[in-house]
Design a protein around this nucleic acid. Sequence first.
DNA 1: ACACATTTGTACTCCGTGCGAACAAAAGAA
DNA 2: TTCTTTTGTTCGCACGGAGTACAAATGTGT
Lengths: 388, 388
Amino acid sequence: MQRFSFNRTQTASNKTPRRINRNLIFNLIRTKQPISRADLSRVSGLQRSTISLIVEDLIEEGWIVEGAVGHLPRGRRPTFLEINSKRAIIALDIHPAQTTIAVTDLAGKIVTQQVVMVPDGATKALNAIVNAIRKLLAAHEDLSFDGIGISLPGRADVHLQKLIFAPNLNWPVLSLKSKMERATGLRVKMDNVANACALSEVWFGGSDGLHDLVVVNVAEGIGTGIFANGQLLRGESGLAGEFGHVQIAPDGPPCACGSQGCWEVVASNRAAVGYYGELVKSAVPITFEALLKLAQSGDAFAVQAMTKMAENLGRGIRLIAVALAPKEIVVVGDITTVWHQFGSIVEAHMKKNAFTKPPLLRPAYDGNTARLRSAVALVLGDDAMGEK
Amino acid sequence: MQRFSFNRTQTASNKTPRRINRNLIFNLIRTKQPISRADLSRVSGLQRSTISLIVEDLIEEGWIVEGAVGHLPRGRRPTFLEINSKRAIIALDIHPAQTTIAVTDLAGKIVTQQVVMVPDGATKALNAIVNAIRKLLAAHEDLSFDGIGISLPGRADVHLQKLIFAPNLNWPVLSLKSKMERATGLRVKMDNVANACALSEVWFGGSDGLHDLVVVNVAEGIGTGIFANGQLLRGESGLAGEFGHVQIAPDGPPCACGSQGCWEVVASNRAAVGYYGELVKSAVPITFEALLKLAQSGDAFAVQAMTKMAENLGRGIRLIAVALAPKEIVVVGDITTVWHQFGSIVEAHMKKNAFTKPPLLRPAYDGNTARLRSAVALVLGDDAMGEK
DNA sequence: ACACATTTGTACTCCGTGCGAACAAAAGAA
DNA sequence: TTCTTTTGTTCGCACGGAGTACAAATGTGT
């Protein structure tokens, strides 16, 4: 007779410490390579003997390799350890019209990178991407690939890895993962652009992975990735972070989501293009890239439109700052190219009436590489090193 | 579980699994008592032998005791294990005018409870509370106390345990912790009301502690506690969750925080009292409790005021739902006593134009006990049982 | 040239921990 | 009485980290 259901809770076995320490050491090597065993011991606090055993395992399994020999003023020379550069990951940065495909090593270094124009139509688009991946795989037969990481404009259920909400993509992303896994034989992991960038910041941003940060991805819409307590905040079925559909202007224009005055309606790239269109009274909308060029060259209407966008962006970011009080808020998107012009406007509106210390606000160093490098975090993040 | 994520726990030693399993077993006993060793084994998945050793430790250290002997259709009778009812915690629920002091056991059962009217003035207030605690300690000499847990209207820095932001309290809470520790000799932990209620929900709500939930505390102001990824989200220096100061009405009335149209200005108890005052054009404001009574008795103006408050409450909750997509949103505060009347209004505004499945919205089962029971979570929560 | 200091990386012992099997204990059923 | 079932304990085993000792490697001082 069972009086209690089998809710197996998270237990630890005598192998648990090794799993934890192994991950710790691998991460240290990944971020601080090249590094010697002795330095690993000093940084981690684990004994040199323990480090040696863990490193032996990691080498045997091909995650890392011994590299050059260092030089010290006295004593035996240290052997540097490095990420095995023969292990690689396919990184996909999917946009509505084009997709960037890259090969990166496990430390996030981009080996090659190419842009594929994606044709209209579901099957064609997928085929174009898969073919490009196949060519890359064939061209890098010396590498062994651990998986495919995809950053895309939409929300994905983390567990099912199904795309739930992707208004800007009109091809069948729901089955993207399974189709691509069948076609390439590689494990596929995908996540929202903003989440991907947040992971990149934490994995490669040199932070200690402890502090909270929010990534705001400004594109056709606005998406946010929330990193808190050492993890991405995903919410029920992966829908957390939709700050883009928070109401900023109660009487604002309608949004595709069914509401009106959503943040992304008044602060996205599309919004800025709309503002400009109203000012010049032109029926033909220009691209956001063109608008940025105009604003950079000092065009009065373009500056006016971008200023309005920046103000609204700041208002929404203020909301995030108040609600979540992260240490840092990072902005990703094309607007970062004109940050020197409009960043201060965004920041001023974020800080307006702030009653506590506002978070650091900064543009991402390089959104493109951030999105690509997130593939490593996505692929290695969950259960990459498998149960052995 | 993330394999390569950055872990808060630095390194693991060979003692780590025991620490993890010990906490697990203690929590199972705490929530499912009375329970036998064999059942603990089935529920946790750990071997009976392992359970026996851990239980031996817990008994030796006085956390639990062996209780009655069970009865089964066949076989040896199980010995039930229970929380040691001689271990207790002082729970403080501080409000501006009055403070509730309670003694609870480690399972959150309230042993005694009393309300202390707090006089005006810094020293007097603290003395009144400390004296009441001293009397309680003296009256329960058979119990051994593990600490004091305080739930209060304000934000506290978790690490320093200093009160940062408590507009409604006008006595020197900054040194509350250290003074009280000196006066009682007990360890003091404190946290914001909303955080405390969120902890209570997770510790005593029967959930598995995995799902995300947000607690909205509606009182003179509005505070929120965010539980996500198995932890409270605290943000930089503990200021996360100030959704109360998110701007809901851009042209709304000014707020004490310096901004205007903040959620708490339009949806708190104080707001409802204001709405009622406008309607009846009375210069003398009534208390919120009186307003609730009027609304319950069907007073048209009171119902109108409460309806406006409920609508605005729903608007803000919608924002939380969109931004964080928690599984559940729990409302705490006096308004829950009239939830049957106005809950549907709140819910309707939360669901307005929802483009995804909205979270469950419900009033807390009993906010008073929730706040008191949170003391257990606060005192035992961090590393109380950990390092010996 | 040679002893010594210094540093790295490995070998080995010790202890803590969970696992699994065996076993004792307890109680009802045949 | 004997068998069955269930609980709780004991014991041997393997794994893993800590700590110490030691070999290896390299520069410095005499």
